[in-house]
Amino acid sequence: MLELIKAGGWVMLPILTLAVLALAIVVERFWSLRRKEVLPPGLGAEVREWARKRQLDPRHIDVLRKNSPLGELLAAALDMRSRPREIMKERVEDVGRHVVHELERFMNTLGTIASVSPLLGLLGTVFGMIEMFLKILTTGVGDANQLAGGIGQALISTAAGLCVAIPAVMFHRYFRGLIAQYVVEMEKQAIALIDALDDSSDVGVDPTLDERSAG
């Protein structure tokens, strides 16, 4: 393996660096995007029960905000529970943009690695071919070993770049799809909470007050 890396030339160093960085990002994203960390099971139903029973202690809301991305979104709705529905929705959308940005952390870096790695491999191929032609100019075509060295550098660097780029593309698209799925589910939970807050506020109104005001 070490001999292959040496044969690939200097371009193998940045390719290997990108490979290590991509591996670190993939491991970190798998850990951070676990479903129970983003969408804790039962959290939405529990918060809706708080709203129905009016158990909305500020300390509970603060703990909820730090619980998970879903908790942060639900806490934003609870902060605006005394405001009209449209204002609540606007607040949830604003916080949602920040939550999505956090969920997409390192995605641009992983996408860049997927794009740059094959280009680095191609660059190594170009340098390998240049080296081969320069040796042909100086020694002629009689030395097959020197020709094989240039061709080997070209092929190894290309293969290395593709070996880094292909998994990076696959994981990049997988994480993008996973995040999109989480966002849809968080939106559903937020809308359900807003509906529950509307219902609880309607229940809290004494119907006799409307009759008195009408009279």
Rank of each mutant, 00 (worst) to 15 (best):
M1W: 10
M1T: 12
I5S: 02
A7I: 03
A7V: 02
W10E: 05
W10D: 06
V11T: 14
M12A: 06
I15W: 13
L16C: 03
L21I: 13
A22Q: 01
L23R: 00
V26I: 15
V27A: 14
R29C: 05
S32G: 05
K36F: 10
K36Q: 13
E37L: 14
E37P: 00
E37Q: 09
V38H: 07
L39R: 06
P40A: 08
G42C: 09
L43G: 04
A45T: 11
W50S: 03
W50M: 02
W50I: 04
A51V: 05
A51W: 09
K53A: 14
K53I: 07
R54S: 11
R54Q: 13
Q55R: 15
D57Q: 06
R59H: 11
R65W: 10
R65E: 12
S68A: 10
S68W: 08
L70K: 07
G71V: 08
E72W: 01
E72Y: 03
E72T: 12
L74P: 02
A75P: 02
A75N: 07
L78F: 13
L78Q: 04
D79E: 14
D79R: 15
M80L: 14
R81Q: 14
R81V: 03
S82E: 14
P84Y: 07
P84R: 06
R85I: 06
E86F: 03
K89F: 04
V92Q: 03
E93N: 08
V95C: 08
G96F: 12
H98T: 04
H101G: 15
E102M: 07
L103H: 10
M107K: 03
M107N: 12
L110Q: 01
G111M: 09
T112H: 04
I113L: 08
I113Q: 05
A114M: 11
V116Q: 06
S117Y: 10
G121E: 07
T125M: 09
F127S: 11
L134C: 01
T138V: 06
T139P: 00
G140Y: 09
G142C: 01
A144D: 06
A144S: 14
A148Y: 05
I151D: 01
G152Y: 11
L155V: 10
I156F: 09
I156S: 05
T158L: 11
G161W: 04
G161P: 05
C163T: 15
C163F: 12
C163D: 06
V164E: 12
P167N: 01
A168Y: 07
M170S: 10
H172T: 03
H172C: 09
G177P: 06
G177L: 09
G177K: 12
M186I: 02
M186Q: 11
K188Y: 10
K188R: 14
D195W: 01
A196P: 04
L197Y: 03
D199V: 13
S200N: 03
S201L: 13
D202M: 14
V203I: 11
G204P: 00
V205Q: 11
T208F: 11
E211H: 02
